[in-house]
Simulated assay, not measured.
Amino acid sequence: MRVVGITPNLPVADVEQAGFWRDFVGLCEQEFSLGWVARYTDPATGLHVQLVTADATAPEDSALTVKTDDVDAAYAEARAAGYEIVHPLTTEPWGVRRFFVRAPDGTVVNVAQHSG
């Protein structure tokens, strides 16, 4: 799998309560919010975090998102390696194609490809 980005997914009670990340850490740009997930970014560096209350379609939340340029190949690779697929390869209503896989240490990873 070719990784093109990694984003930490932080569990929170309310994605709109991002004052610490915005005001103290300086992640002042809200790139998007779907109500249950929001990404806050430093506009100068592009560094960011995603705040997640509960995933909208997956049975478990992920600890991080690994972005790839070929999610179908990554899915085939994960299955061939025998890793547990937590959420099957899906094109989500918000335009992301993704799956969740459990690493051997138990960490749930969202492997995603963004269109465009």
Score class of each variant (00 low, 15 high):
51 L>C: 14
54 A>H: 07
76 A>T: 05
74 A>I: 06
49 V>G: 10
76 A>W: 03
67 K>I: 04
70 D>G: 09
60 E>R: 13
74 A>N: 07
53 T>V: 15
53 T>L: 11
79 R>F: 01
68 T>A: 08
77 E>S: 10
74 A>W: 09
54 A>W: 01
75 Y>M: 03
64 L>V: 15
67 K>L: 10
75 Y>F: 12
59 P>W: 00
60 E>V: 09
69 D>T: 01
52 V>Q: 12
65 T>Q: 03
66 V>T: 08
67 K>R: 07
53 T>A: 14
50 Q>N: 03
72 D>F: 05
76 A>F: 05
77 E>Q: 06
54 A>I: 06
69 D>L: 08
46 G>T: 03
50 Q>S: 06
65 T>L: 04
69 D>R: 03
66 V>N: 05
61 D>Q: 07
62 S>N: 07
49 V>I: 15
65 T>I: 08
45 T>N: 13
51 L>G: 09
54 A>L: 10
49 V>C: 10
70 D>W: 06
48 H>G: 00
74 A>Y: 06
62 S>L: 05
58 A>C: 14
55 D>N: 13
76 A>G: 05
53 T>P: 13
60 E>T: 04
81 A>T: 02
73 A>T: 02
74 A>E: 12
61 D>N: 13
59 P>L: 01
54 A>N: 03
64 L>N: 12
46 G>S: 03
52 V>L: 15
50 Q>P: 01
60 E>C: 11
72 D>G: 08
68 T>N: 04
63 A>L: 04
68 T>F: 08
74 A>D: 13
71 V>Q: 07
55 D>Y: 06
78 A>H: 08
55 D>P: 09
62 S>M: 11
60 E>Q: 10
77 E>L: 11
80 A>K: 12
62 S>F: 14
45 T>F: 14
